[in-house]
C-alpha cells in the first residue's frame, strides 16, 4: 500500500469530478436555498429559520446521495467499460490500491461538496438573522448560526461515505444499472430500517421475526445518521451518540471496502 499511489488515484478521481462539472450542483443548492429563504420569509413568521435549516440539510443529503451513487458506481465500472484499467493496472498499482484510491477520491469530492454546502447554509442563515427583527429572533427554537448544525453535516457526510462504499462495493461485481438500483435500494431500506425492526410487532411467525431482526442489524442502518429533527429543534445531540454512529459508519465502510477490494482483486478483465 503506497500513499503516493493512493493519492495519485484519489486526485485523478477528484479532478474528474471537477472536469465533469459535478460541483455545479453547489450552484443549484445555493439558488435553492436563497430562493427558499426569500419565499418562506414572506410566508411564515418564526418558522422560516427552521424550514431553511431543514431544507439545507435535506438538500445536502439528497445532492450528496446522487453524487455518491452515480459517481460511486462509475468509479470502477468506467475503468472496465472503457478498458482504461488495462493500461492502469500494468503500472505498479495493486488492485486494492486502485479501489481504495478511487474511494478516497470520491470521499474528498464529497467532503468539498458538503463543506461548501454547510458554508452556503450558514451564509444564508446569517443573512436571515441580520434582517430579522429582535422579536422574531426570540421566537426561534435554536440560534440561527447554531454550531449544532455542523454535527448534522458531519453525520450526513459519514452517511454519504457509507453510501459511496455501498455503491463501490456493488460496482466491483455488477453492472452500473444494477449497482445503482441496489444502492438506492439499500439507501431506502437503510432509512426504513426501523420499520423493518417493527415488522415484528405485526408478524406472528417466529422465523420471520428472527429474519427481520437479523436484517435490521446486518443491513446498513442509515436512519441514525439523520439528526436533522433534534438539531433544528435546538435539542442537544449527545457526543456519545455521534461517536458511536460515526464508529458504526467507519466499521461498515471498512467492511464494504475490504469485501469490494477482495472481489475486485480476483476479477478477470476480459
Amino acid at each position: 500500500m503506497s500513499g503516493g499511489r493512493l493519492g495519485a488515484v484519489a486526485l485523478s478521481v477528484f479532478r474528474e469530478s471537477v472536469r465533469d462539472r459535478v460541483f455545479y450542483n453547489l450552484l443549484l443548492f445555493a439558488v435553492l436555498l436563497v430562493g427558499a429563504a426569500v419565499l418562506v420569509g414572506q410566508m411564515t413568521a418564526g418558522q422560516d429559520i427552521k424550514i431553511i435549516k431543514d431544507l439545507g440539510l435535506a438538500a445536502t443529503s439528497a445532492f450528496g446521495l446522487f453524487i455518491a451513487v452515480f459517481i460511486g458506481i462509475g468509479l470502477v465500472w468506467k475503468e472496465l467499460e472503457r478498458h482504461s484499467v488495462y493500461s492502469l493496472l500494468a503500472k505498479p498499482v495493486r488492485r486494492t490500491e486502485l479501489v481504495l484510491g478511487k474511494y478516497l477520491g470520491l470521499a474528498f469530492t464529497l467532503l468539498v461538496n458538503v463543506a461548501v454546502m454547510a458554508a452556503v447554509l450558514y451564509v444564508v442563515l446569517a443573512c436571515m438573522w441580520w434582517i430579522s427583527p429582535e422579536n422574531i429572533r426570540a421566537s426561534w427554537e435554536s440560534p440561527a448560526l447554531d454550531p449544532a448544525l455542523l454535527v448534522a453535516f458531519l453525520l450526513i457526510y459519514v452517511q454519504l461515505l457509507l453510501v459511496t462504499a455501498i455503491a463501490l462495493f456493488f460496482s466491483t461485481f455488477s453492472s452500473p444499472m444494477l449497482s445503482a438500483v441496489l444502492t438506492f435500494g439499500f439507501y431506502v431500506i437503510g432509512h426504513f430500517n426501523a420499520d423493518l425492526k417493527h415488522f415484528e410487532t405485526v408478524i406472528a411467525s417466529a422465523p420471520l421475526v428472527w429474519l427481520t431482526r437479523a436484517l435490521y442489524y446486518l443491513l446498513p442502518n442509515l436512519a441514525p445518521f439523520d439528526v436533522t429533527a433534534p438539531v433544528v429543534h435546538g435539542q442537544a445531540v449527545s457526543p456519545g451518540y455521534v461517536a458511536m454512529t460515526i464508529g458504526y459508519g467507519a466499521v461498515y465502510v471498512a467492511f464494504l471496502l475490504a469485501a469490494g477490494a477482495h472481489i475486485f482483486a480476483r476479477r478477470d478483465f476480459k
Binding site: 430500517n193 426501523a194 425492526k197 442489524y217 446486518l218 442502518n221 436512519a223 441514525p224 449527545s238 456519545g240 451518540y241 458511536m244 454512529t245 464508529g247 458504526y248 466499521v251 461498515y252 471498512a254 467492511f255 475490504a258
Partner: peptide, 20 residues
C-alpha cells in the same frame, strides 16, 4: 468487521434507544 458494526449498533440502540 461485521461483528463490530452489529455490536456498535446494538450498543447504540441500548444506550440511546432504537430510532422510532
Amino acid at each position: 468487521l461485521v461483528g463490530s458494526f452489529v455490536a456498535l449498533e446494538l450498543w447504540r440502540d441500548r444506550v440511546y434507544g432504537e430510532p422510532a
